[in-house]
Simulated assay, not measured.
Amino acid sequence: MRKINKKSILVLTDFSGYAKNAAESAMSLADKMKMDIILCNIYPVPAVRSSAEILFPTGYEDIAKQQSIDSLKIEKIRLQSILKRDTDISRIPGLTIIDEDHTFSTIANLIKKEKNITMVTIGTRHHQGNEFLFGGGINTIVNKSNCPVLLISEKVLTDAIKTIIFATDLAIEDIKQLKLLTEKADLFKSHIHVCHISPPTPIVIDFNEEYHLSEFIQEMGKLTFKKISFKNIQGKNIIQDLIEFEEETHADLLVLIHKKHSFLWKLFHESKIKRLVTNQKSPLLILPG
């Protein structure tokens, strides 16, 4: 693959309706943030269970690759027509396609290596298995990526991002990502609701938790971005409370930080959280931890 010379948003597509929503969301962001767009299709590659049993018919790989290239070209034309219709002609983002063979694993390695890929967008389907974040493929991207991953389902993310929910467990290192988020929020003139997600209050007061809360709010106060507020979501019905808060604030974007061993990230592997993710109409942005 040729070197990527400009800051770009990588769109992983399977040409479904959700994937098209993701591509259109990427266009809105690229236009606002002055980035280019790269389209890539990941499709199953031939695998062998044993020396005698092949899962794909002979010639599948060549046919699949050609279909992928043809579909990428059609999608590129569709997106270019939208860009020309809706974007100032003087600053239309560049749009290229990756037509080499790629698996989720090779793309994840590319994202990690290529510094000019600044975001990945993926269309998520509600029926892609039981694994968190709709299957191992997206998990591979999230686990290996050193840039934000944006998951889009029903709702296209436009440049009118008015309300953002930033979920945190009060880890002080989250302030760094919050600061970076405020820079983007300032560009979109958004309001950020910082939501502290925590388990039910223990019988014995946790003074350590109170200290972290005080420290986090103090660091928040040092941010120059002022369209920001704080909310505590605590108890046994965290997921339902978060869903209700999303609806109450008409949130355009939910933001999480990927930290495997945090309470918040573990929560997103429990069965209850799948209800939030599978019913997630608003886009979900996962920041690297």
Score class of each variant (00 low, 15 high):
287 L>P: 09
113 K>W: 03
83 L>S: 05
122 I>N: 01
103 T>G: 04
247 E>M: 13
183 E>Q: 11
5 N>Y: 13
203 I>V: 13
159 D>N: 15
203 I>S: 10
55 L>I: 12
240 Q>E: 08
119 M>P: 03
92 I>T: 06
119 M>L: 13
214 S>Q: 11
221 G>L: 06
134 F>R: 07
6 K>D: 08
27 M>F: 13
220 M>C: 12
191 H>S: 15
121 T>N: 04
50 S>R: 05
194 V>E: 12
279 N>W: 09
154 E>D: 15
275 R>V: 07
130 N>T: 07
70 D>H: 09
4 I>H: 01
231 K>D: 08
43 Y>A: 05
182 T>N: 04
278 T>I: 14
135 G>Y: 10
157 L>I: 04
195 C>S: 12
34 K>Q: 15
227 K>E: 14
20 K>E: 10
205 I>E: 13
132 F>I: 08
259 K>E: 12
173 E>F: 03
116 N>V: 04
140 T>P: 11
104 F>W: 05
116 N>C: 04
184 K>G: 01
197 I>C: 07
227 K>G: 00
103 T>H: 04
273 I>L: 10
71 S>E: 15
130 N>C: 02
254 L>S: 14
224 T>G: 13
155 K>V: 07
186 D>N: 14
191 H>A: 14
276 L>W: 05
99 D>G: 03
24 E>V: 11
28 S>F: 11
61 E>P: 11
210 E>D: 14
277 V>A: 12
63 I>K: 15
191 H>Q: 15
288 P>E: 04
154 E>T: 10
259 K>F: 09
253 L>D: 02
52 A>P: 00
132 F>N: 08
35 M>T: 07
88 D>W: 08
272 K>L: 10
223 L>R: 06
35 M>R: 08
30 A>S: 12
197 I>Y: 01
186 D>W: 08
252 D>S: 07
64 A>N: 07
50 S>G: 08
3 K>E: 14
128 Q>W: 08
218 Q>K: 15
67 Q>T: 12
5 N>D: 15
170 L>I: 04
123 G>Q: 07
245 F>E: 15
101 D>H: 10
120 V>N: 00
276 L>N: 01
65 K>E: 09
288 P>Q: 09
160 A>W: 03
174 D>L: 00
10 L>W: 00
169 D>R: 02
261 H>Q: 12
189 K>S: 15
71 S>P: 14
29 L>R: 07
10 L>N: 01
286 I>Y: 04
54 I>A: 13
91 R>D: 07
282 S>H: 09
101 D>A: 06
81 S>L: 13
101 D>C: 01
20 K>P: 00
156 V>W: 01
165 I>L: 15
287 L>W: 09
144 K>V: 00
55 L>N: 12
69 I>L: 02
107 I>M: 04
